[in-house]
Every structure is written in structure tokens, then in C-alpha cells.
Design a protein around this nucleic acid. Structure first.
Length: 811
RNA sequence: GCCCAGGUGGUGGAACUGGUAGACACGCAGGACUUAAAAUCCUGUUCCCGUCAAAGGAGUGCGGGUUCGAUUCCCGCCCUGGGUACCA
């Protein structure tokens, strides 16, 4: 509701309540308002505003709201009756079901995330996130700094009543404006029809027809072919009045910038190829430019053929051109973002209903006291026959007028006693963009979280999640958080201080290969992997639980599914070998492994530690249980430290030995460091080293072992809790016990086994006192007979001594 | 194409700031204990050459560079995974 009732004030650089905007309109009209809003907002005076009826005012305000209705092109899948996100569409077909998807214009709720583009970009520098993830967000936001330039349309003879007199382009290289030899607008550009001369009409219409047929995929795949058509019209270069032809071509996208580009073939490769293909002039504009075979986008050198910027360098030229354009009102410096506003609606059943009803086709929020709005019951979770979303099936899905809650609209025809609700539901990110605040105060039924709770918890210290959310959830969450901050509802600008991308444990899928007959139909015969190349087959996922070492258990396969009961096999060496692929674990891929069996066999502590031991947290890798025995053995060995041969609890009080303390403090330090950098796999190996050492020392000292239990407890909580109680502590207190304090005293060495290397190759080790200084070390080493043997009597050219590290001799 | 991450033994991986490459495990081979098994323990295990051993050589995707010294830094290339898609 806040998001509906707010607008973005660029001067204050924050969202503000819509009431504030209305108050301004009443006072000053639309003057002095610097808002992020739709392009086609009216400008009006205060009097004109007051003269509008409520409906007109509402319609106007809708163009300013952070949540607004907009006609947008969506991926519409008729078979599923729903709109799909780009990543749910694969090659023009829905990923789910494989139905055809078409482009369709629809009125959709959108959110003005673009208002926050700059803040979303800047904020990235303040958070501790993985650099690749930040990079993905930066690319997605896609800030580019340049200029917009208006090219006046040369008065066409065929059409004296132009609705616009300029074509506006966006460019990042306004300095190349004197190299413009043509202008290209997108085939969907609104001026195409007006600009097309009667003589070119057929060619332009044919081209548009051809583009329409191409799916987005074809347009992408076709990036190499040059195509386009001349409109017959011209624009003038605003700086020198040169006549420039206007073309349409599908390499210009309607959705980015202004849907029009200035063609500078000498500096842009796409423009270059376009000019070559259609025989348009290519004018060099920089003295060092080499445009023999391709465009040269250099920023070095000095300008030529460029009027008043001739002789200038890139920076000065850009500034000079922008200044001139501003002076004559033909352009200005501009920042463009690639990011689009986000659609905030789904034509599905399962989602929060939008608390909006419609009156005279304009949306209104329902009264707060009528919340929550509960999903109505429907007979089927499917779109209606007429293509409306599933909520269109709900009977009486309309806002019931009660005298207080429906505002008087100041116009006739208010008699209706109910108004239809919005039929779309909210998308997944409506909930995922703020849920962590709810965790701060989960039982609060008055507000989303109390002020005190938010003041106390503030933000998320550590967020562990996948990078697949980079341009979705993680961007929307930052957007909403910034909005909530603007509304003074939360205290931090960024929601997630530190973020780590954990790797995904993947599944190892197995396949059988079904033989395809001449008619292209699947048979009930399956070909072993090695012979697969000789037949036409189609791969089929098979349950990994009936495959061992890639060999299919044929009898289990026959009962895997009823239709396989009579399956036949083409074997190799008497075995059926399955195909293998590493993929995401998924039920439909039959590659899910269930941890229950492992827990049954080894216990939860072993499984937990093994998962950590597997490798770095950030790394994705297929699941395999090859090394689990090692962790299991380690835990048994740890347990044995506390027990004698007869498995009786047996620890000794008293002073620990020096060696025991050394092992203990080594691990105290190591685990402390590892936890800091989330390197759990290396802590597990360190635990193994410590336990091996303590076993060799036959350590059963109470003080040492008790500290070991504390350190290990986050890794293997069950066994540690058990030992904690055996050691005589109160049950349940282990997790509240402080981490042991590291004391470097126990690790001080007086000797070090220096590696002696010759020309960087290690030859031997030599024990040398650490108190010795490099000069003395050198003398000591050179006096050593073994070293002399390596030196073969000669004296080294140079001896490098790095104290406590290495000795290297150059010969 | 562009952006990002990565490439180390038979396997998972370690080496954090340029300083003994392969820690710790798995696997494998051999052995001890045992009637036998389980469990446990010991020895070996990067590759090549070498009868053991010693000694030597090569070696962190490939080619080059910087350095006394490079898995680590720089340049070029190859491959794998992820992202993005004609963004003016």
C-alpha cells in the first residue's frame, strides 16, 4: 500500500508520500516537480489541477506512483494461460510443458525500480558481497553515461502534419556526431509510419512484416546478417544541418534508450557493417582512425572533419559538443539505464491478492481496515475460458461498498454497491523482498515488525544464498529495503551486509537409451551406453538407486515402472552401462540422494562434518560419499581419546603436557581463523590432525579434551554434547560456553627446519635456531658438509635468507 | 561476442600476504592382529629413470615473461562452468 501511495522525488532522492505530491500540485501545479514518472505526464498549473475532476486527477497520479499500471509486452503462453518470465521461456517455448509462447501487450502492475537505479548501483560499494555477484547487478542495472540528441526532421513533402519534429537518439559517443551518416530507428518506433514516404512504403512494410515473423531468438541468432530499409525521409544534423537519411533496422531495439540511434560507421562496428551493406558513406572523424576493414572506436587522437571540435581531444570534444547542443536546445547530457521497471503481477492463483479494486477503470486501494484480503475459493486453479486469471473464477470477487470505506468520487453513478477486485495476484518477490524483517518480530500482529525490534536487529549480518538470485530476489530486496528506509520504516539502507554464494551440491544422473524405430517412435528396447552411437536412441533419466557404478540393475529396472516390465536390452559385455551427467538434484531427474540412509549408518554428526569436509563452501560439485568413511573414523577416534580399551570413560585430571598444549592451541587458532573466512573444510582437516597428534600422545587430559569438545561442538554437536556431560558438565550448557582463548606462548618454537634450496629447488632441510640472525644462518649453512656436497666446492653467487621461512642459494 | 569464476595426483581437496607443491582424507598396494570377519593399527602411494636404496629429472591447462624463488604476479592462448545477449 505504501508502494502504491508513493512517488519518487529526484530532488530529495527518495520516495515520498503521494499526499505530498498532491499538496504540491494544489499549490504550484506540476512546475518544480522533479519526479521519476511516466514520460507522458501532463504539465499543468495549480488552477488546472483543481479544475480536473477526481478521475482525471487519479489518472494523472497513477503516472507518478511507484506501483502503477502500464501496458507492457509480456511472454504470454496461451496453453498455460499465464505470463512467463524471460527465463521461463526457452527457444520460444515454455520451459514447463513446452508450449508455444507469444508476445502480447497487457495492462500490468509494475514497480518503479528504475527510480532506485543509481542508489542500487552506489549501494553495491557499501556491502560485502562477492564481486561477481555485484558485477552481475551492475551489468543488469546497466548505467551508461552519454547524451540525448534531437535530430530535427526535414519537412517531408508527403506529410505536412508531423506530430513530432525531432527524432531523439541516445549515444555514449556524442563526440562522434560529425561522423553521423544515417539514422536508424527500431521497426517498432512510433514515427515509422509518419516518416515513410509513399515511394518507400512497400519496402518498409515488407521489412516490418519480416521482422515481426522473426522470434526474438531468430533476431539474436541473426546478429550477423545485416538488414534494414530506408524510410525515404531525412533528418538534419543539429550541429551542421547536414541531411541524414533515416532507416529502420532490427538491430536497434525499441526497448532501450529512445529506440533510435545515430549511425556513426567509422566508430561503431554495427553501424560500419550497416553502412557497407547499404552503401552509405563512412566518414573518418579522428586523425589516427583506421577504418579500412572495420570501425575504430578509439578515443585517442584528434578530431577531423568535425567542425568546431577539429583538433580537440576526446574529453574536451565531448564537453564542447554537449555545451553546444544544450545552448541550441538540441540535446543534453544524459544517463541511461538498461534496467526496466519490474512487473508486479502474475496471472496465477497462488499469490497474495492485490488489495485494489477498480472503479471507472481506475485502481483504488481498499481501506486498511478491510485487510487482510484473503484468496477466494475457485473451482479450478486455471484461467477462465475468456483468458482471465484464475481469480476471475471466484464468485463475488469484488469490494463491497460500505459507506465509510468507499470514498465519494464526486461524480454520478456511485450507486453500485460493489467494485471488482484486481484479478492478478502478486509475484513471488512480493514476499521474498522483505521477509527477514518479519523474522525480527515474528509474533507481532500489529505491524510488520516493531520499531524496537528493527532498531535492535537492523539488518542481516550474513546471507547465504545462490547467485541465481543476483538479478531477481537480491535486487528486488535491495529496492524494497531502500523504499522502506525512505518511508522511515527501517533503519538500514542495505538489507544484507555480507553475502556468500554457497555452491550447489549437484546430483549425478544416470540415463538409459531408448531405441527409436524407423517411424520415430520410442520402443521398449534399451541400448547400453557404449553401443549407443550405432543406434538412434533417446536418453531417459533412470533412478540412480537402481544403478551401481553406472551398471543398471536390470531386474530392478523392470519393476521401476510398469511399462518397463517387458523391456529388452542390448548389452555390452553382458552388462547394461548407463550414461552419466552432472545436474541439479531434482525429483524429475531421479538423481536425488536421501541423507536418511547415511544418517542411519553413520549418524548426523558424520554427515554434517562430511558435508563441510567436501570442499569450499562456495564450490558446486556433485554429491558423492566416497570420503565419508574418513570422517566417521575420525569421530570414533575422537571418542576413543576419552575412553580406554574397554570403552570405559577415562580422563585424567592434572597439568597438560607441553606437547598436548601445543596441539590444542594450534587448533584453537586454526579453527578461529577458518571460521572467520568460512573455510570449514580446512578446519575439519585440522581437527583430524589434532586428534591424530593427541592420539599419538595418548592424551586423556581433562583440560585439553574439554577444550577440544568446545571447539568441535559446532561441527559435531551430538557427540560433543554427549562427551560434555560425561566430563561432568550440565546438559545443554555446551553451546553457551565460551570459545577457548588462544595463547601463542604454547606455539613458540626455538628451532625451525629450514628448507635449503639451490636455484629455487629444495634440496634438504636443516634445523637452525630461530634466534639466529640471517648473517649467522648463512655462515652456519655454508659450514654444513651436506650443503657443501651440493655446492660442489664452489661458493654460491648469492645467498637469500628469509628468517623463519627459507634459505635459497644461487649458483 | 562480452562479463565473471575456475583448471593442482587415480578421487575430494590443501598450500591464507611470492618462500619446502600435493596437508587432511578417500581409493589402491602390501603387512600386523584374528580360526575367520568386522574393528583397529603399521608401511607405501605425483610422474619418469633407476634391481632395493641412494642419486637424478619433470611437474599445478598450454606458451612466454618478471623474480634469488611463481599454483600464487604480468602478457597471450586453450578448455570447463555460470551470467548476459545486437544496450547505441
Amino acid at each position: 500500500m505504501h508502494l502504491f501511495n508513493s512517488w519518487y522525488n529526484k530532488d530529495a532522492d527518495k520516495a515520498e508520500s503521494i499526499d505530498k505530491l498532491v499538496a504540491h500540485f494544489e499549490r504550484n501545479g506540476s512546475a518544480d516537480i522533479n519526479a521519476v514518472c511516466d514520460e507522458e505526464v501532463l504539465s499543468f498549473t495549480a488552477d488546472e489541477w483543481k479544475a480536473m475532476d477526481l478521475k482525471q486527477q487519479r489518472a494523472e497520479l497513477l503516472k507518478y506512483r511507484l506501483t502503477y499500471l502500464r501496458e507492457s509486452t509480456v511472454n504470454w503462453c496461451p496453453a498455460l494461460g499465464t505470463v512467463l518470465a524471460n527465463d521461463e521461456v526457452k527457444d520460444g517455448f515454455s520451459e514447463r510443458g513446452g508450449f508455444p509462447v507469444e508476445q502480447k501487450k497487457m495492462m500490468q502492475w509494475s514497480m518503479r525500480i528504475t527510480a532506485y537505479a543509481e542508489r542500487l548501483l552506489q549501494g553495491l560499494d557499501t556491502i560485502d558481497w562477492p564481486e561477481p555477484l555485484k558485477e552481475m547487478q551492475r551489468n543488469w542495472i546497466g548505467k551508461s553515461t552519454g547524451a540525448s540528441v534531437k535530430f530535427p526532421i526535414e519537412k517531408p513533402t508527403h506529410n505536412s502534419q508531423l506530430t513530432t519534429h525531432n527524432i531523439e537518439v541516445f549515444t555514449t559517443r556524442v563526440d562522434t556526431i560529425f561522423g553521423v551518416t544515417f539514422l536508424v530507428i527500431a521497426p517498432e518506433h512510433e514515427l515509422v509510419a509518419e516518416l515513410t514516404t509513399p515511394g518507400q512504403k512497400a519496402a518498409i512494410e515488407a521489412y516490418i512484416e519480416q521482422t515481426k515473423k522473426k522470434s526474438e531468438l531468430d533476431r539474436m541468432a541473426d546478429a550477423k546478417t545485416v538488414s534494414g530499409a530506408f524510410t525515404g525521409s531525412y533528418v538534419l544534423n543539429p550541429l551542421n544541418n547536414e541531411k541524414i537519411p533515416v532507416w529502420i533496422a532490427d538491430y536497434v531495439l525499441a526497448g532501450y534508450g529512445t529506440g533510435a540511434v545515430m549511425g556513426v560507421p567509422s566508430g561503431d562496428q554495427r553501424d560500419y557493417r550497416f553502412a557497407k551493406h547499404f552503401n552509405l558513406p563512412i566518414v573518418p572523424i579522428i586523425d589516427i582512425q583506421n577504418i579500412e576493414n572495420e570501425a575504430d572506436p578509439t578515443k585517442e587522437g584528434k578530431y577531423i572533419n568535425s567542425d568546431f571540435i577539429n583538433g580537440l581531444k576526446y574529453k574536451e570534444a565531448t564537453a564542447a559538443v554537449i555545451e553546444k547542443l544544450e545552448e541550441i536546445g538540441a540535446g543534453k547530457a544524459k544517463i541511461n539505464f538498461r534496467m526496466r521497471d519490474a512487473i508486479f503481477g502474475r496471472q496465477r492463483y497462488w499469490g497474495e491478492p492485490v488489495p485494489v479494486y477498480f472503479k471507472d477503470e481506475l485502481p483504488y486501494l481498499i481501506d486498511e481496515q478491510d485487510l487482510p484480503l484473503i484468496l477466494p475459493e475457485v473451482d479450478k486453479y486455471l484461467p477462465t475460458e475468456s483468458g482471465e486469471p484464475p481469480l476471475g473464477r471466484a464468485e463475488g470477487w469484488a469490494y463491497k461498498a460500505s459507506p465509510n470505506s468507499i470514498p465519494s468520487f464526486g461524480e454520478g453513478g456511485d450507486e453500485a454497491d460493489s467494485y471488482p477486485y484486481e484479478l492478478s495476484t502478486m509475484p513471488g518477490w512480493a514476499g521474498s523482498s522483505w521477509y527477514w524483517y518479519r523474522y525480527m518480530d515474528a509474533h507481532n500482529d500489529k505491524e510488520f515488525a516493531s520499531k524496537q525490534a528493527i532498531e535492535y536487529w537492523r539488518d542481516v549480518d550474513l546471507y547465504i544464498g545462490g547467485s541465481e538470485h543476483a538479478t531477481g530476489h537480491l535486487l528486488y530486496s535491495r529496492f524494497w529495503n531502500k523504499f522502506l528506509k525512505d518511508m522511515d520504516l527501517v533503519v538500514e539502507e542495505e538489507p544484507f551486509k555480507k553475502l556468500i554464494n554457497q555452491g550447489m551440491i549437484q546430483g549425478r544422473s544416470n540415463f538409459v537409451y531408448r531405441l527409436i524405430d524407423e517411424m520415430g517412435r520410442g520402443t521398449n528396447t534399451f541400448v547400453s551406453r557404449g553401443l549407443n552411437a550405432r543406434y538412434i536412441t533417446s536418453p531417459l533419466h533412470v533412478d540412480v538407486n537402481i544403478v551401481e557404478n553406472d551398471v543398471l540393475n536390470i531386474s530392478k529396472f523392470k519393476s521401476f515402472r510398469p511399462e518397463f516390465a517387458n523391456a529388452e536390452f542390448i548389452l555390452e559385455n553382458g552388462k547394461y552401462i548407463c550414461g552419466v551427467e552432472i545436474e541439479k538434484m531434482s525429483k524429475s531427474k531421479f538423481n536425488v540422494v536421501n541423507p536418511d540412509d547415511l544418517i542411519e549408518r553413520y549418524g548426523a554428526d558424520t554427515l554434517r562434518m562430511y558435508e563441510m569436509f567436501l570442499g569450499p563452501l562456495e564450490q558446486s560439485k556433485p554429491w558423492n560419499t566416497n570420503g565419508i568413511e574418513g570422517v566417521f573414523k575420525f569421530l570414533r577416534k575422537f571418542w576413543r581419546l576419552f575412553h580406554n580399551e574397554a570403552w570405559e570413560f577415562n580422563v585424567r585430571d592434572g597439568e597438560p603436557t607441553k606437547a598436548e598444549l601445543k596441539s590444542l592451541h594450534k587448533i584453537i587458532r586454526k579453527v578461529e581463523e577458518d571460521v572467520e573466512r568460512f573455510s570449514f573444510n580446512t578446519s575439519v582437516s585440522s581437527f583430524m590432525i589434532a586428534v591424530n597428534e593427541l592420539t599419538d600422545l595418548k592424551c586423556n587430559n581433562r583440560a585439553v579434551l574439554q577444550d577440544m569438545v568446545i571447539i568441535l561442538s559446532p561441527y559435531a554437536p551430538h557427540i560433543c554434547e554427549e562427551l560434555w556431560v560425561l566430563l561432568g558438565n550440565k546438559a545443554g550448557t555446551l553451546s553457551y560456553t565460551a570459545y577457548p582463548k588462544f595463547n601463542p606462548v604454547y606455539l613458540i618454537e626455538d628451532e625451525f627446519a629450514y628448507p635449503i634450496s639451490i636455484n629455487g629447488k629444495t634440496k634438504m632441510n636443516l634445523n637452525i635456531s630461530l634466534s639466529l640472525e640471517p648473517k649467522d644462518i648463512e655462515a652456519f649453512v655454508l659450514a654444513n658438509p651436506d650443503v657443501q656436497k651440493y655446492l660442489d666446492g664452489k661458493s654460491p653467487k648469492k645467498v637469500i635468507v628469509v628468517k623463519g621461512r627459507i634459505i635459497n642459494m644461487v649458483v
